[in-house]
């Protein structure tokens, strides 16, 4: 994995306040002193290499649709199987194994609360394991992006 100085600026300097004008990549290109094509190519490359998830919006939780953090205590020998069942749900957008007896953690997002509960119930039914539903009550952090060091 190699990140050039130019890549680092693309990754760091445009995490917020992305230009809201017809040709935003021209504005970024001007800031960096390169051509628009170069910026588009590099972003596409960073995305293809998995370093950029997307150039887009971080939306305030529960403003469009509703989401929750869910967790399960999965016997280690069943973890791959259960993770596959969880991943099969299109409503799941993050799914991690963590070091704890409650070892599978995932975020579920749906259009409404009923849809969300359906997903959790379906996972319980398919795996035979209980799912903890841990909805957000209060957010303290303002997401300003993540600065690479």
């Amino acid at each position: 994995m190699r990140v050039t100085a130019a890549d680092k600026r693309l990754l760091n300097d445009f995490q917020r306040d992305f230009p809201l004008e017809p040709r935003p990549f021209v504005r970024i290109a001007e800031t960096l002193g390169v051509a628009e094509d170069e910026v588009l190519t590099r972003f596409a490359d960073l995305r293809d290499r998995g370093m950029v998830s997307r150039v887009g919006a971080v939306i305030q939780p529960n403003t469009i649709g509703t989401s929750t953090l869910a967790a399960m205590a999965v016997p280690p020998e069943r973890l791959d199987e259960v993770a596959t069942v969880v991943n099969a749900e299109a409503a799941v957008n993050h799914n991690y194994e963590r070091e704890h007896e409650i070892n599978l953690w995932f975020v579920v997002t749906a259009a409404d609360a009923i849809g969300l509960q359906e997903v959790l119930k379906r996972i319980e039914r398919r795996t035979g394991l209980p799912v903890l539903d841990l909805p957000l009550e209060e957010a303290f952090h303002i997401d300003l992006g993540f600065q690479l060091t």
Binding site: I59, G65, F106, T109
Partner: peptide
Amino acid sequence: QAVLFSRRRFKQRGACFDAAPAREV
């Protein structure tokens, strides 16, 4: 308190708000 480091990442992408439900197996 408890500290839960991540081990494996099974999935990471942007939210999907109105996905069709996964098909029943």
